[in-house]
Design a protein around this nucleic acid. Structure first.
Lengths: 241, 241
DNA sequence: TCCTCTCATTTCGGATCCAAAACATCGCGT
DNA sequence: ACGCGATGTTTTGGATCCGAAATGAGAGGA
């Protein structure tokens, strides 16, 4: 049997998901012994996994003291959105002339689902009740699915990789409270998706590019509002040197 | 005595420089035992360093077979330039309103040196003699110094980090042959620097942005010409997990 | 000759072991 | 009571050791 993967990489992937998913909150100190017990391995592969996470910017090494899950400042979060805005704009521009009818149909399907979820979220936000985290997560994933079609067609692996790693600078599945002012932001997001879809369908690369850029930047403001409602309890995990 | 750094990080930094500097050519297999002898440590910190390099994308792990320095295809190289173009455009736009007179003076100083080196390179290219690698490397570093001023003023650490890691996708100090057609490309590069400088001085963020973007994209064509004269070999293994 | 099976050698991934650095506790002297 | 240094504990960084996978050489057979 061929070992296609190594323990260190498996552990790194699991920890990576848990950190970016918010399951392991920022500023947590990761004890090597604890992790080795949990994964039932020795400390050696654990440390290699931690090195990987450090290189990805998810944790920081403090020599002889331990590793700590990095927290991210509002400034860093905004910067991540700037990066995503530029790179998604580029990907959209490149993807536009490559779009086949099948691709466009897929975009429509994904966008329909996104639209439905958006309606649900808007209802929830308008009613002012406590938000359901799972619904928000689903909405997010549908959002990502839309952009993923563009990335796939653009066929720019490096751009995709960087943009997605900037994308993970994020909230996770923590519970949050809906607010009435989010309603219009959700609606705006949906409308922007449709505009992007139409610009691509019309074959206008430059228009699609501009729309994609504005879309990401405006979803930045959405996220900032969400974080604001989360208050001090919510801090996103993230990136950095 | 306080250990401010760890062995693994030291080794990683050294290897990183050697790889991006071209001292260790692509497709080289790195033997753990060899490295541990060279750095006079055991294999443990060596492997941790290699994990870091893998996460940075400089090497790829092939389980139970070894690590290999990644080579880059022409397609990947072009993509890296696209990324740099977008991010440098962003950084330039952000930096423009933040520029102080001192910053502008520094840009002028760096640009003067770049202009001088450009003249030397043009002479060399026109004369058609075999190019001097060290001169080319110096020219390159002066070029980077110009852009680094912009990055510093922009104060976008994430953007800077990504752009610089895209920048390293590169040639190194391998010897190459000058060609007459490079002359105008060098001249164009120099002129573009001055145009960027002037746009920034005039406070026009959008113009500076557009110029920076075009500049990076055109230096892409320059590099492609250089690679062509090198008889570019381009092929890359998969992205190491 | 060429193919294949076997077996020795390399090299890697992981476990275990050890020294040193940080941390916590406690006792002493003022 | 309070500051401060000695001492034991925890945790990390690195070295050493071992089993397993891959590579390579050589013997045997078609």
């Amino acid at each position: 049997m061929a070992t296609l993967s190594t323990k260190a990489d498996d552990i790194a992937r699991v920890l990576e998901d848990e950190i970016v998913g918010g399951l392991i909150p920022p500023d947590t100190v990761l004890r090597q012994e604890t992790l080795s017990e949990r994964f039932e391995v020795s400390r050696t592969p654990v440390r290699e996994a931690l090195r990987r996470l450090a290189a990805l910017g998810l944790v920081s090494f403090e020599p002889n003291r331990g590793v700590r899950v990095r927290s991210i400042s509002a400034h860093e979060l905004r910067e991540a959105f700037l990066v995503r805005a530029e790179l998604e704009a580029l990907a959209t521009e490149v993807a536009t002339p490559k779009m086949t009818p099948d691709d466009l149909a897929e975009m429509d399907a994904v966008e329909r689902r996104f639209g439905d979820l958006t309606l649900e979220l808007r209802d929830q936000a308008r009613s002012g009740v406590t938000g359901d985290a799972t619904l928000f997560v689903e909405w997010m994933q549908a959002n990502y699915a839309f952009h993923d079609v563009i990335y796939r067609v653009a066929d720019l692996p490096l751009v995709e990789r960087i943009a997605k790693s900037a994308r993970r600078t994020f909230i996770g599945d923590r519970v949050w409270r809906a607010r009435a002012e989010l309603d219009q932001l959700y609606a705006k997001n949906d409308l922007q998706h449709r505009a992007i879809r139409e610009a691509i369908g019309a074959g206008s690369a430059t228009a699609a590019r501009a729309l994609a850029r504005e879309h990401v930047l405006s979803s930045n403001t959405l996220i900032e509002v969400v974080l604001e409602t989360l208050g001090a309890s919510g801090r996103a995990p993230g990136w950095g040197a």
